[in-house]
Write a protein that binds this DNA or RNA. Structure first.
Lengths: 327, 327
DNA sequence: TTGAAAGCGCTAACAA
DNA sequence: TTGTTAGCGCTTTCAA
């Protein structure tokens, strides 16, 4: 027989403390009451191990202290690092975090958003690469990462353009002669497209020659295409990949061709990924400060929730990290 | 001026459909009503775009359809893969998932658990390596991963012992002669300790000689200690590491000493990690079927929530995967 | 099959 | 400073 412990309510506390429920509510919510009453109520709360019911409170206040994060998949070091920092920031402010894996599927995204509306999440942080502009109601605070929606939606992003520039500068400084950009291209516009722009611009300004391989997503036979590209441009010795995983794919192909970084060529990715906090970088990379990204997203969202209108666009600096694939 | 859209309630629907709120509730919850009333109500719901308020419902029913997962950190491929599958299973059954990073800090864990109690999560899945037995109340359905708590808490785990055996068998079959186990040891007992037991037992039965390096956690100067161990046992050519990240550390040390896998030695990790679903294994490994682990945990938890008493211990099979560090 | 109404535990307005 | 009370939106019993 399972013992069902009836949960203790404010009324119980009020009765034990010999005060009204309003007073208990005041104590719980930190409003001013007479010191002696405060003590009585606290004692009763402790005695009964009273915990306020967040659902009753939410029903009344229309607030839940819940935030949702929508992302393609948590099983990816960039997203899990980001989610890690988001949760960390949020829990400090007493918010909880729902996680929603949408797998780059727009209909799943919409389902989630609809679902979240009923559940009174106070806001959403979205890393989403599909076309859901219409479903982001202005009623629900929403902060987007890396992607610009309509005018009203604020977003935070790394300085992708400067990152591309930095990649070019580093590669030049480290003595490369023949450059290449390798990346994919999503049908929906997002900020990561600026990475290559920055890269191209610096190289052009410096009068360097370079090749590019830009593959429309979804990419089939990625490694085959990279291999073909490399074989067509055998002199390449300085590669900038749109992200770290792309850099890894490139390195696999190069290895197959008997070339190793940083001996035979140098390569820089983007993101600055690590598998986990205490692991090494996968490759030399332009690192996004994920922690800052998360903090900014959280701050924006919370101020949106408080009814303020924060900066609608926040751009964060990036930096170069040596992951052993540059000299 | 921000337009505050007052949310539509059951009462609105009832009024428009010309029925009572009870009837609307019945329709929403799938109870039997007359076909014609059903239609009227559905029409009204669609017309008003009515969404039930989960908080009012939760207040009434004491259910939230929220589950929490407590883990050291989501920023780790094992945990993020696991959380990925947990969320996937859960969302199919209309549950949402809170994520709680506790950073191996027992007091944070306790705080989270206390917090979750107020929030009416329907249950918790915990991957936790600290001592929180006392805080798991029997009122709150709890399923533990890899760790056995008191009698009443059900847990699911991979067959760590069989995994250790398998590692030994594979290494023997692939021709290794001098074996070693390298791993850490947590002060709290958990199932991963069985990995080495299985490994030892097979080697002993086969009359093979082997060395062991078992470091109490937290480990300081891990690589230094590994290096010392390797230098003391230079003939080692078959290593079983307690997990994939440990294997990676070992490989770094070996590389420093000029030895490469699988040419100069072979190494097998445990977990079968990938950074992301479409990435390669880090190393040859004894793979846990994370998806099954997640599914079992979810099934157990949901049946616990439904008041059943599922198997209190579920042990799942493991398999060997070739990650290029064995021949 | 249905409507009316009580009440879940809380907050906040009002009155004392 | 405090107690009392209405009511948030829903489910569920009871009576019709």
């Amino acid at each position: 027989m399972k013992e069902i412990k009836k949960s203790v309510t404010m009324k119980d506390v009020a009765r034990l403390a010999g005060v009204g429920v309003g007073t208990v509510s005041r104590v719980v919510n930190g409003f001013k009451v007479k010191e002696s009453t405060f003590q009585k109520v606290q004692t009763a709360i402790a005695e009964l191990d009273y915990k306020p019911d967040e659902y009753a409170r939410g029903l009344k206040t229309n607030r839940s202290n819940n935030i949702a994060i929508i992302l393609p998949t948590i099983w990816h070091p960039f997203f899990s690092e980001f989610a890690y920092y988001v949760e960390k920031n949020l829990s400090q402010k007493n918010y909880k975090l729902f996680i929603c894996n949408v797998e780059s599927d727009a209909s799943t995204e919409i389902e989630y958003i609809e679902m979240l509306k009923n559940n009174k999440v106070d806001g959403i942080i979205g890393i989403t690469y599909s076309d859901i502009d219409n479903y982001i109601s202005s009623n629900l605070p929403f902060v987007s990462i890396d992607r610009h929606f309509s005018e009203n939606v604020s977003y935070v992003t790394s300085d992708n353009y400067a990152g591309g520039q930095l990649a070019a500068e580093v590669l030049i400084e480290k003595g490369c002669q023949h450059f290449a950009f390798i990346g994919g291209k999503n049908i929906y516009k997002n900020e990561t497209n600026f990475r290559k722009e920055g890269f191209y611009d610096v190289l052009e300004k410096e009068g360097k020659n370079f090749s590019k391989l830009v593959l429309p997503e979804p990419i089939e036979d990625l490694e085959g295409k990279i291999e073909m590209f490399i074989l067509e441009h055998p002199k390449i010795d300085g590669i900038f990949a749109v992200n770290d995983f792309m850099a890894i794919s490139v390195m696999k192909v190069m290895q197959k061709l008997g070339k190793f970084a940083p001996k035979d060529y140098q390569i820089i990715g983007f993101d600055g990924l690590k598998s986990a906090i205490d692991q090494d970088y996968y490759v030399s990379s332009i690192k996004q400060s994920t922690d800052l990204l998360a903090k900014s997203a959280v701050d924006s969202l919370l101020s949106l929730i408080d009814g303020h209108q924060p900066d609608s666009r926040i751009v964060l600096p990036v930096s170069f990290v040596d992951g052993g694939t540059t000299r």
